[in-house]
Amino acid sequence: MVRAPRLRDRALIAFSWFSGLGLLAIFAVVIGFLLARGWSSLRPELIFGDTPPVQALLFRQQVFDGLFPAIIGTLSLVLLAMTIAVPLGLAAGIYMAEYCRGSARRLGLFFDILAGVPSIVIGLFGLSLTIFLHRHFFGRLYPCLLVSALALAFLVLPYLIRSTQTALEEIPRTVRLSAPALGASRLQNIFLVLLPRSLKGISSGILLATGRCAEDTAVIMLTGVVASAGIPRSLLGSYEALPFYIYYISSQYGSRQELQNGFGAAVILLFVCALLFTAALVVRHRLAKRFFHR
């Protein structure tokens, strides 16, 4: 071999190591900075302020200077959004994997388009839908928890459909055909054989979508989240949420204490998303392993 390629080889290897170490360093700095600044504020007061935790948890007393309302807001938002999105996404995914033949396959294009639409545009859609309904049908409807949850559901729908479809399509033909061969109906095959078999792929998709709901800020900014609302009282009221609180603090914090709360909130949100994400990876990894051993 001539020398020139070896030199190029070495340069490429050096560059790759440089990139890899660089990325790891960036990651370490981001996480390290957050933990260093936010760790000390992770105390019960961060969440409950001056209110006794038990009173707050029983919703007997309002929390004014803690994250409690924002956490409850995010929790109800995520639950509501997933309640809307999961049945819809599973049903659509089942259709795409099990029923869809011929030209109906083109529906996939629209899911891809929806997956690409920026979250702020989905938020804008939620807002304009609210304005439309407010003007023509329900005068009492304003941007609120329900609208946000609906818009978030639209945001994660394409991921849920795709992960369900992929999980179902990965099932080997032999498994797919054995129940019908024994006389099971198509629906029995889907619910008793195919869905249980693809549970891990589907649940990892659901976990990822949940994380996406919990972290998204752009959608809820346009559809009803506010800086201070207390515990959400109804589906049609405004609410607080963790990601918006973090954004709000970064743009206008009034005191050191508030800034410290912002760091605490960022650590909590990071932790929640990391947990969901790791759970999704573990579940999916198990799935992959099962397939390799077959």
């Binding site: 981001v30 957050l34 994380g211 919990a214 972290e215 998204d216 800020t217 990601p243 973090i246 954004y247 603090i249 970064s250 912002g262 760091f263 960022a266 949100l269 990071l270 998303c273 990391a274 969901l276 994400f277």
Partner: peptide, 9 residues
Amino acid sequence: GIPTVVLGF
């Protein structure tokens, strides 16, 4: 999986 808003923060 890192939230965008946390990265911005």
